[in-house]
């Protein structure tokens, strides 16, 4: 029953930045995710929601090959980025990550100055232009410029949690990657900081393609254009996450097609 949506073959949408067709993800012998096909559409925010352990973060992290770091990680299926299979043999994960940026659950600024944090990616990519202008631009985009413009030399770690997370977003957007993956970026933040980051996402949407994992359904409803609902089957002592349904956010929340989605949205389990 949960497979119904999978039957409709993923259409290689013209507007898809990332076209993800995951059959199975293993960690060693453990099957973590199965049958999850999503197109991350260009210029939109795609929200991933679902109960904990449903594999939404795992799927997100396999979109820029962050999962390669985990021992025993194996992916069956394919992930296309602008038509190119990122799990092909010749593909360098380092290059993939330079094009598909990421913002993590915990703010993780480097222990260097605020300026150097943002300029880090520019240096990494041997950016030849005006670094200062780019840094200012990125910090402005991240709605942090006014707060830090007088202390760019201060350590990134001296900022508050919410500011640190916006710094990390500035760092990620400084190189203007084509896609931004955000893995529960607000989970360590207070409500006010969360609100600011959400506003930021809505603003960034005009220039970026964003995939957002969130534990908070309301957040998905507020910011996502498209919502993907994941669930988990618990069987034979294992937990395997999978995609249940994906569609326009309004449709997922107001008229879900799947019973499981309806139950989750209705708060019957979490």
């Amino acid at each position: 029953m949960t497979n119904a949506s999978v039957l409709e073959k993923p259409t290689a949408t013209a507007g898809a930045a990332i076209d993800c067709n995951i059959d199975k993800i293993y960690y060693g012998k453990f099957l973590a995710v199965r049958d999850s096909n999503i197109a991350i559409e260009k210029g939109k925010i795609t929200g991933f929601i679902g109960p904990s352990g449903c594999g939404k973060s795992t799927v997100l992290r396999s979109l820029n090959r962050m999962n390669d770091l985990i021992k025993g990680f194996k992916l069956e299926g394919n992930v296309h980025f602008h038509g190119q299979e990122i799990y092909d043999k010749g593909v360098d994960p380092v290059v993939v990550r330079r094009h598909i940026g990421m913002v993590f659950q915990q703010p993780n600024p480097f222990s260097m100055s605020i300026f150097d944090n943002v300029a880090f990616g520019l240096k990494l990519n041997r950016f030849k232009g005006d670094v200062e202008e780019r840094v200012q631009h990125a910090l402005t985009r991240a709605a942090l410029w006014d707060e830090v413009k007088d202390k760019l030399k201060a350590s990134g770690l001296s900022l508050s949690g919410g500011q640190q997370q916006r710094l990390c977003i500035a760092r990620a957007v400084a190189t203007q990657p084509s896609v931004l993956l955000m893995d529960e970026p607000c989970s360590a933040l207070d409500p006010i900081a969360t609100r600011r980051v959400e506003e930021l996402m809505l603003e960034l949407k005009n220039d970026y393609t964003i995939a957002l994992v969130t534990h908070n359904m309301q957040q998905a409803r507020r910011v996502a254009d498209i919502t993907a609902f994941f669930s988990v089957d618990i069987s034979q002592g294992g937990r395997t996450g999978h995609l249940v349904e994906v569609g326009p956010t309004d449709q997922i929340f107001d008229a879900p097609q799947e019973k499981l989605t309806k139950q989750y949205i209705g708060g019957e389990f979490s």
């Binding site: 602008h82 380092v94 290059v95 990519n125």
Partner: peptide, 19 residues
């Protein structure tokens, strides 16, 4: 050896590491 991603938009400064 250096793998290149070909992108439709060239606004990004992202590029592969140098040889």
């Amino acid at each position: 050896m250096a793998f290149q991603l070909v992108l439709p938009d060239s606004k990004s400064v992202s590029q592969a590491p140098s040889p």
